[in-house]
């Protein structure tokens, strides 16, 4: 299964997708008892599909057998979700000073991921495109999040982009005014931070566990005079901007959505 099709797929989506693809007759109860061999109660399976509980590794291995896939290909989703959950909880304390354990942080990260998709779906040069076409593109990303996605995502994403002055809408058309989304409120910062963590953990697990060849993961390091750090960051930013613009698909061209997460900090 191509998991890269969705902005932010988790283990909950794998369980839901597997059951739905087997057919309408597979209710939670029947899937839990017949396919998963009674290793999980229907109520718990419901919680798992909604992302309210994590499955055990044994249950994920069982699902992998059912799907005839290597267990690691599914376990990485479980491991990443657990890491994101723990990161989201700690980050919530760091940003808001509250101890809140919930899946809401992960849902907000989906919004942050959709914002990236929405920006990338508009031409770099600010050309106007039909609003309906852009919304249809965005809706495809939203639909791919599964039935348990938060409601009103399209409106949420559009409102954020308009508020930040990144898009302009007129006479049934839309165009981009800017390409850099900035998280401002504590909720937005939390969501974006969890998305960044999701990108990193996906790359890390993909490279280390699955040994993916199409993932780039490398630490570059250097000794640098402190007063040159700002200049270094400026050139790094300019170089990455130039690369992403140069290699971004032309409108109508096929391609993959590639995240390039960069962090640099003096020790």
């Amino acid at each position: 299964m191509d998991q890269k099709a969705t902005p932010f797929k988790g283990i909950k989506d794998i369980f839901y997708q597997t059951r739905v693809l087997m057919g309408r007759e597979y209710t939670l109860k029947r899937f839990a008892s017949e396919i998963l061999g009674g290793r999980v109660e229907a109520v718990m399976l419901s919680y798992i599909e909604k992302g309210k509980r994590f499955p055990t590794e044994a249950l994920v291995r069982r699902l992998a057998q059912v799907r005839r896939e290597m267990p690691e290909t599914l376990l990485v989703f479980l491991w990443r979700d657990r890491m994101l959950y723990a990161f989201s909880r700690e980050l919530h304390k760091a940003i808001k000073g509250e101890d809140q354990a919930s899946i809401k942080g992960l849902e907000q990260a989906e919004v942050a991921a959709l914002i990236s998709r929405a920006i990338a779906a508009l031409p770099d040069d600010g050309t106007w495109i039909p609003l309906t076409r852009w919304q249809a593109d965005l809706n495809r990303s939203i639909l791919s999040l599964g039935a348990n996605r938060p409601s009103g995502l399209l409106t949420t994403v559009m409102d954020i982009l308009k508020t930040q002055g990144l898009i302009e809408e007129a006479e049934g058309k839309v165009r981009r005014l800017g390409g850099h989304y900035i998280a401002e409120s504590p909720d937005e910062k939390h969501a974006l931070a969890v998305e960044f963590c999701g990108i990193f953990t996906k790359g890390l697990l993909g490279k280390v566990v699955l040994k993916e060849q199409k993932t780039y993961l490398r630490n570059h390091y250097l000794q640098i005079p402190e007063d040159q750090i700002a200049a270094f960051y400026q050139k790094l930013n300019a170089a990455v901007n130039q690369l992403t613009t140069e290699f971004a698909s032309e409108e109508g061209e096929a391609g993959k959505f590639l995240n390039v997460l960069i962090t640099s900090s003096p020790s």
Partner: peptide, 30 residues
């Protein structure tokens, strides 16, 4: 069903990404 779904999803991916015409970035420097 999965094989059919894979084809369907790959088709969806092609549709999905064919719309991508640009690049962008996100960060915290408010």
């Amino acid at each position: 069903v999965f094989q059919t779904a894979i084809s369907g999803i790959l088709y969806l991916v092609c549709i999905l990404i064919s719309a991508c015409a640009g690049s962008g970035s996100s960060g915290f420097d408010a």
